[in-house]
Write a protein that binds this DNA or RNA. Structure first.
Ligand code: SF4
Ligand code: SF4
Lengths: 137, 137
DNA sequence: GTAAAATACTACAAACAAGTAGCATTTAAT
DNA sequence: ATTAAATGCTACTTGTTTGTAGTATTTTAC
């Protein structure tokens, strides 16, 4: 259970872009709208392109645009690509590999909550987010 | 949503100690049972003492023992004392102070899950953990 | 009273995450 | 062609968290 700051930045970027799904956004434009250090933002945009969420268009008038339908992009996929799945799925006691044959006392306590987290992240696509609310972002 | 490794270490320590609530545990003993670097474990034990969960008994035959009834120690209190409450409660987009007057689209998506997390951590005491399961730890 | 077994304190070191900088490359407008 | 506006790559710097070391202090056993 560990969302890095970078994952949160990725959320900011993609949720913002999802507001107008078909639009092309330049790094500068994004920087003006969401509070992420400019160079770091750019690097992250490149990473998100490589992960296939968005694609980059180079050159003057270039920028970033979604590479696939935003209803197919879930929050879990985003976290997974930035932090890795372990960050969410890992043992609540921080063991690399579970030290126990049977589950330890903490396991059951956390299991349901962990499921809820994964469930929410899995079921929520970028499209869902803006369907829920139409407020400005 | 960010449990540091140190918080997880704290869980390991206290959940282990809660198995025999009234016993006195030396740092060495704990080190043999849970996989936390020895010197780091000791420092953390001192911190947990200062936070009032356990108390230290110095000198030969010394060690650590719960300072209060384990039914009054919740997981949230432990996280709070190690990482601070913000680590759990913080904005899913990582904004220090919410940038919006009204809630942004992400807020509602996460609100329920966040509540579930806080709820679980608040309602689960060290006693509950071992009441749920009697397995060895 | 001396030694041994424990915790306490504080500074340092290593590892990791976050942020910055410089320069290269691509493309459109002129 | 030239210039400007954009992304791409890679190395460096800074900050935070995690882990280590040395030394001091406390208390019991003998
Ligand atoms: S059983 Fe315990 S140690 Fe193993 S993965 Fe679950 S919480 Fe972690
Ligand atoms: S409304 Fe949005 S930005 Fe504000 S705290 Fe909630 S998730 Fe964060």
């Amino acid at each position: 259970m560990n969302l890095s700051k970078t994952s949160k930045y990725a959320f900011r970027i993609l949720v913002h872009m999802a507001k107008d799904e078909k639009a092309l956004y330049s790094a500068q434009q994004l920087h003006q709208n969401i509070d992420v250090p400019e160079r770091y933002l750019r690097r992250l945009l490149t990473d998100l392109s490589k992960s296939g969420f968005i694609k980059s268009i180079q050159g003057r008038q270039g920028g970033f645009i979604f590479a696939r339908d935003i209803s197919t992009i879930t929050l879990l996929q985003i976290v997974e690509s930035v932090d890795g799945l372990d960050s969410i799925n890992e043992c609540i006691l921080g063991y690399d590999s579970c030290a126990f044959d049977y589950s330890c006392p903490m396991h059951d306590v956390w299991a349901e909550t962990k499921m809820k987290i994964i469930d929410t992240l899995t079921k929520t696509s970028l499209k869902d987010i803006h369907n829920n609310r139409l407020e400005d972002f």
